[in-house]
Design a protein around this nucleic acid. Sequence first.
DNA 1: AACTCGGGGGT
DNA 2: ACCCCAGAGTT
Length: 367
Amino acid sequence: MARPEVHPPKLDDALVARLRSELLAWYAGAARDLPWRRTRDPFAIWLSEVMLQQTRVEAVVGYWQRFLDALPTIEALAAADEDQVLALWSGLGYYRRARALQAAAQRVVALHGGRLPADPAALADLPGFGPYTTGAVASIAFGLAEPLVDGNVARVFARWFELELEPHGGPWRRTNWGLARALLVADQPGAWNQALMELGATVCTPRSPRCGACPVASDCRARAAGRTAELPLPPKKRAVVEVHVEALLAESPAGVLLVRRPPGGRNPGLFELPTRELAAPGRPPAGLWPGDFGTPKLEPHWEAADEASPFRHAITHHRIRVEARRVGLKPAVARRLAASSAYDLVPRERLESLPLSGLTAKIIAAF
DNA sequence: AACTCGGGGGT
DNA sequence: ACCCCAGAGTT
């Protein structure tokens, strides 16, 4: 089986010069006024890049300012309680990012005197700094001539140069990073890198690209070939996993009963409602509440139940269907359960200071 | 290289 | 409903 042919893009000097000057001029006038573009604080820029990993600008804006208000410096983040860091992240998802962020802050305090090092190799050694984030912080926060490739940049390159590369493989990675380095504008790497991403985010969009607004449309090979709709090649689809769970909002006057996720596995350290997995919708399992933990049995102790219509929640390739109900807990039972290490009884007004997953917060808010 | 991440907003 | 996002870490 022949491999799909790859067209190595020819980069003649005139083309490179046009792409650079046209895109930079466009970016100077078209850049969105994003809050992290108003600061030169490396920590604030770093925080934005971590929050933006696999997460859209629209979802990040509110979180970024709130996080900085609470933990404005690397020292403050390093010294903060992990629960506070995770609580500030609640709803953003991919909570490993928050743990890596704090671990990196602690290492920056220990190794670099609390200041982010202006050195790509040193940055890349920090938790949460992969190739993209290293290039982004180096170029945007420190003005270093380092390239970056994200989903936007790869899409722009695929269209500019009519690249037919299987996404995320070795050839895809080498081609995109090679192009990013070759095109980089060394004396303004931050502006160039952000201009590439901005074009991908606002003009060269995955569907319905606005080629009429593109400053370099006349140099776009996919445009010339009428192939903007079919490039870049789509990623292979992952099979969707259906998950059915039953969750319990057990509440007494003293608060809501929560369980803390154990270390390892999904959402370690986050609080969630007592939950058990169902073999099929409406088919109760044999397990106790909360099914995952093998801890005290709740079922005999609640007074009345309110059913809620099933919650549906999608995360990556999981489709989660949650049958939730609210039950009243007798105060004595609540006290006994809260005294066991398996449960925490949390007053509603304290919930916002705890690390809750988005799904957990959604269910609690619905009752 | 493939898989996970128990999010979420735009279209 | 589907797409895919300013990806990184693990296996």
